[in-house]
Amino acid sequence: MFKYVIPLILFLVLAGFLYAGLSLKPREVPSPFIGKSAPEFNLPQLMQPEKSISRDELLGKVYLLNVWASWCVTCKYEHPLLMELQRSGLIDVYGLNYKDKREDARLVLRSTGNPYVANAYDEDGRVGIDYGVTGTPETFLIDKNGTVVHKIIGSLTPDDLRNCILPLVEQLRKADSNNQVSREAVEACVS
């Protein structure tokens, strides 16, 4: 009897591991910045090179930092959603234009619309490295204290926004020393 039960159990265990493996996303390396201060940067802006933009200027507001490039195909796919987000006025999106040619990036924004409040122009990808960017697009949700609350690797989806980002944003705006973000809101982003 054992002779047949043991291989069956082994098979089930193996099948269980393989099944779990199907839904793993090895690309989605957890960001070491979650809960930590967003790295500092001070870069020229994309549209107005004579102006600069730094992390410290953005302290005090809740915003999304979207890492993108004109050569990035998934960014094009994501673009309409960002446009919609801008129209809704629910949250400001700042861009980190990563390893791009200024002209190419401007052309994209001019021809398809500019969903960003402002763009930091990271020509050599240094700030990208500081933020642990492995590919575009990546989106960081940053709170009033400049802390990274969440990171989404790959294109944002309406589901991400509805279930995770927007509820969190609402709470983060209200959050202060005696008003913490609820655990449910954070956990909604984990799945």
Partner: peptide, 8 residues
């Protein structure tokens, strides 16, 4: 590198 990209 670990600070930026994690232990992975």
């Amino acid at each position: 590198m670990v600070v930026r990209y994690g232990d992975f």
